[in-house]
């Protein structure tokens, strides 16, 4: 995935600094954090650094470049394509997806109306998150997840930033494209936070497969029902389930004969099975494959693959190790 669109939204003052970072750092760059009047920070795999005006990395904040008001205003102009008024909805959500599927989180002063977030103004904090599409991360898991040429209902359990979205995207692409062992299926993605497909103006920026339809920015429960009715998918893909409405929609989908790939935030399988909303789904053995991720050996470390009886499967096929 190209990092170039990220440079294009940075004002020259910051872009020049980031661009002059060594290639080894750029390759592992995960986040660029810009805060008005405070040191410029970057985050690479497991480490954070302050960046000086001469692109030196340091742990000391006082050596770093301090982006000013002008820089922040300019950054906001570039992110919004000079048209912040087209992004009222995005500002309410607190993030903007730019070309390439990269995501920029925003903080500032929240304007409330009737107790609900109406708008974000005086935006002074930016978190540029670099999306890394890793084609093929799911490949080693495929024999385990689709053993008998049949699509299983997969739940990916993972703490934040362990590669669950990357994995689910690759799974969607894999199923959508088909392979020697499995036929190509119609895939529907409900992308509530524009993370899986990273749509800009409705067009997926990530490769999600040739037979995939994306419902961008739609609440999951509603979106699942919409997709089932409108696009008749064989497989539904949703990120971060956990609300009551989600579980109801999942039931509906399963009854409609649609398969499901979902992710959920969590540290262990045991913890997930105890959650009130998910407990019911587990009792009914809805998910037939569970994948537990961690960051132990880098993002995307597979800790284990389980079946609906919470029996570990991957011991039989040997360790997966790091999938990223």
């Amino acid at each position: 995935m190209s990092i170039k669109p990220v440079f294009q939204v940075l004002p020259h003052s910051i872009r020049d600094v980031i661009q002059s970072l060594p290639a080894s750092v750029l390759e592992r760059l995960e986040e660029v954090r810009v805060r008005q009047g405070r040191p410029l920070e970057i985050i690479t795999f497991k480490q954070s650094w302050f960046v000086s005006r001469f692109a030196h990395l340091s742990k000391k904040p006082y050596e770093a470049m301090i982006p000013g008001k002008e820089d922040c205003l300019n950054l906001l102009n570039l992110i919004s394509n000079h048209s912040l008024y087209t992004m009222d909805e995005e500002l309410r959500q607190g993030y903007v997806t730019v070309e390439g599927g990269h995501r920029i989180g925003l903080v500032g002063k929240v304007v409330l109306e009737g107790g609900r977030v109406k708008h974000l103004r005086d935006i002074t904090g930016f978190n540029v998150r670099i999306a890394r599409q890793v084609v093929g991360v799911a490949d080693p898991l495929i024999p385990c997840l689709f053993g008998n040429a049949k699509v299983e209902n997969v739940l990916i359990i993972s703490p934040p930033q362990c590669g669950k979205t990357t994995l689910i995207r690759d799974l969607a692409r894999h199923v959508s494209r088909g392979s020697q062992s499995i036929p190509a299926y119609k895939v529907g993605i409900v992308d509530e936070r524009s993370e899986i497909a990273g749509c800009v103006a409705g067009v997926p920026q990530h490769d999600v497969g040739p037979r995939t339809d994306v419902l961008d920015g739609c609440p999951k429960a509603e979106g699942m029902m919409m997709l089932i009715r409108s696009m008749s998918p064989d497989v539904l893909v949703v990120d971060e389930i956990g609300r009551k409405a989600d579980s109801e929609a999942i039931h509906e989908a399963i009854y409609a004969g649609v398969h499901l790939f979902a992710t959920v935030h969590g540290q262990s399988v045991r913890e997930i099975t105890r959650r009130p909303v998910l407990r019911e789904l587990f009792q009914e053995k809805v998910f037939t494959r569970l994948v537990l991720l961690s960051r132990r050996r880098g993002p995307g470390t597979v800790e284990g693959i389980y079946n609906q009886f919470i029996e570990r499967l991957d011991n039989k096929v040997g360790r997966m190790g790091t999938i990223c």
Partner: peptide, 9 residues
């Protein structure tokens, strides 16, 4: 221009 929400613009 282009730097605030719709009603402000």
């Amino acid at each position: 221009l282009g730097g605030s929400n719709r009603s402000d613009q």
